[in-house]
């Protein structure tokens, strides 16, 4: 059973890492702020989410699992807010770097 769980962890974390890689490539290659934000949110939402899901079988239930999920939700919340602010600034033509 633990072998299957380990396999699940490896698969999910690897998939998450892939999303981070893709997001980073997008961040570096995409032409304008909105598309770059789009690439970045994939890494935040899916990449981190997959890594958290993958790590869930490896931590103590329930406290460790709750901590991981809380971290994921906080990161999602922060990333969403920042994306909104940056996208609005980009739309209004304020200097975005």
């Amino acid at each position: 059973m633990s072998f299957v769980l380990d396999l699940f962890t490896m698969g999910a974390v690897l998939a998450g890492a892939l999303f981070f890689l893709a997001g980073t490539v997008g961040l570096l290659r995409f032409p304008d702020p909105l598309t770059r934000l789009h690439a970045l949110t994939k890494a935040d939402n899916l990449g981190l989410g997959l890594i958290v899901i993958g790590l869930l079988p490896q931590v103590a239930w329930p406290l460790g699992a709750f901590k991981l999920i809380a971290i994921w939700l906080m990161a999602l919340f922060a990333a969403t807010t920042i994306s909104q602010l940056m996208a609005r600034a980009a739309r209004d033509g304020e200097p975005v770097r």
Partner: peptide, 19 residues
């Protein structure tokens, strides 16, 4: 103060401080 403090920033500033 943010130049236009509304929308997402307001939500964040309401939800995050209790935590």
């Amino acid at each position: 103060r943010h130049p236009r403090p509304d929308g997402a920033l307001t939500l964040m500033a309401q939800v995050l401080p209790p935590l």
